[in-house]
Design a protein around this nucleic acid. Sequence first.
DNA 1: AATGGGTCCAACCGCCACATG
DNA 2: TCATGTGGCGGTTGGACCCAT
Length: 370
Amino acid sequence: MGRHSCCVKQKLRKGLWSPEEDEKLFNYITRFGVGCWSSVPKLAGLQRCGKSCRLRWINYLRPDLKRGMFSQQEEDLIISLHEVLGNRWAQIAAQLPGRTDNEIKNFWNSCLKKKLLKQGIDPSTHKPLTEAHVKEEKKIIETSPMQTPLSQGPSVPLIFPSSQGSSLLISDSSYYDGGLTEASREIFMTKPALDPLSYYDFPMGVAQSGFNLPVSQYQTSLKASDQNPFGPNSSYVFSSMPSLTNSDHGNVSVTEFSDNNSASKISSLFMNDQVKESSSNSSNLSTIYHGGGCHISSMMENAGFSWEGDNKFDPLFQFQVNATKSEDFKTSSWEEGQLHTQNSIDFTSFPLTSLSEDLTGANFDVFQHI
DNA sequence: AATGGGTCCAACCGCCACATG
DNA sequence: TCATGTGGCGGTTGGACCCAT
């Protein structure tokens, strides 16, 4: 098999994407949204297969992607989730907003695996290595020394929805010594992944539509179209490839992009109170994230992008949102088992801005308030 | 400066599941 | 029921980059 039928007929480009191709794909998706990937290349004017376009969008162009180093919290979360889920990278990624399965997989293979081995933990079973193993692995490690310091931070407790709708807390104390009970493991394995991004309060019932609408359709509250970078008349330019070397997300408030001459330096962008107020009163978990919040149209309106001078646009902007207030969680309806499927949409299909940073933080706030 | 080995990561491959006709 | 098309996932790989020699 290999290539889909859509790719076989024409001679299609392979390999790394050029900025021009990125621009075409990004412009197309932001204008028309994601419908049928197989038709995207043709409509966007790309010599790529749909699958390749999809991958490029999901792994690289999506504006909500977080970039740069994994934080300690993320690292702990990945390890914990891997213990439960194994190599189900997509499910793990669903718990880490702004991270892709590919990114997590790479991080695991290149870093976390070795880190666990160095700690005497079998990365596949998450149990202590036998003495023989340890000797074996020591050999390997000695020949390929770690470049990153060992994690010293506490492992992070995890929360999973139980079959009763209440939360199942997996404490850090059980982390490395056997981990989950079979029962709890079973509960988690049979439940859908809890994706915090599923709870955004999207306007216009996009979730019900089952079809991914273009960003331009989210812009109902935006002002003049010439101020709207995503609008139908937009013609922003990919002036540079995004920098892949952001500073640590744990602290970043300003993201610098590789092209320092462009206006693509986005200062801290804070969600203001209007966002909260404008959000749906009936939103459930969406309330949780309004502190780090996300009503898409409001987000666009309030984010205050810096479209300066040359109108250049770097799609991988990030912004920092207010830290989620813990009070918000107390009123959340997680405990009530109201995991609303009508808000369960495939976030990876939406060209959204990044909220990942504080959502990750938000996750941990949740843990603290259970 | 050249080079060889190791690392990282973006992209591809192969497979599976599901929808549709 | 079967064939076909498509989306999604996990494993693998090629090449750019880094660093030691």
